[in-house]
Design a protein around this nucleic acid. Structure first.
Lengths: 139, 139
DNA sequence: GTCCTTGCAAAGCGTTTGCACAGAA
DNA sequence: TTCTGTGCAAACGCTTTGCAAGGAC
């Protein structure tokens, strides 16, 4: 497993320090699009000398090396996720949780915006997640 | 014209101070999804005592009263636009300009994300705008 | 030895808050 | 008078920068 990750890092030109690997594993594990602060708090027990600067450094490197995406959907803090299969996001307007959902893609009629070169499209859904919906009903 | 705006304000419960109306007109005028800083700089000559705090105050009020949307697409600074017809955004990856484009929307197959209540969907396109494309070719 | 990773402290930047003054109702 | 709009100054929160110490190679 560690070997697999070392290989991934090597392919992207990232040297496999323990801290970097640990942060990568955390992202792989949590599926919650965590903020820097969350990552820091989750790992500080295990890596007592960890600093937020290091978390910032590592994430910046990961983003540059295309191991990680910055997810930016109207929250103050940046959120991060591993670069995996392309997908869309559902943001719960009650608890602010971001859920990964299958990628939604819209055919764009190029005539509608002539002259624009479309490189990427992103569909974000907003609404209420099952958890919060359940709470609303039961309270 | 001023009367029309006063009516709009009244409907939303916003009292029509000169500063508020001026900021509203600027937003109506510029079509550029400006930041607080841009609004401030554009109006400071005309309203020499204007402060950024006031711009923040007015925009906060406008957002609360649903006169204005906060546009949040991965930039540090919040951007603002009048609440008008629902539309989508195209973000130029070269010059960071945000363009309004016709609203792209398709019904979502609820089965894909069962239990989630979808209230809104947002489509953002990313790519290169005609201006920047033209520059790339000619330079 | 050199290079790189890490992390403290400080600065930076956009935004919000506290508070007070002035004008409107 | 009371209420509201405005704006200075300070605080705040997230992020970046400067720099130095320690470890890897």
């Amino acid at each position: 497993m560690t070997e697999t990750l070392k290989k991934i890092f090597k392919e992207k030109g990232v040297s496999p320090s323990y801290t970097r690997m640990r942060i990568y594993y955390y992202l792989d594990d949590c599926k919650t699009h965590p903020t820097v602060d969350t990552i820091y708090k989750e790992l500080i027990d295990e890596l007592p000398t960890l600093s937020k600067t290091t978390v910032y450094n590592v994430l910046k490197l990961f983003v540059e090396k295309e191991l990680v995406y910055e997810v930016n959907i109207g929250t103050n803090e940046k959120r991060y996720e591993l670069v995996i299969e392309k997908h869309s996001h559902f943001i719960c307007q009650v608890c602010n949780t971001i859920y990964d959902i299958p990628y939604i893609c819209r055919p764009i009629d190029e005539d509608v915006i002539p002259g624009f070169e479309i490189i990427d499209q992103e569909v974000n859904l907003k609404g209420i997640c099952p958890n919060c919906k359940h709470k609303q009903i039961t309270t």
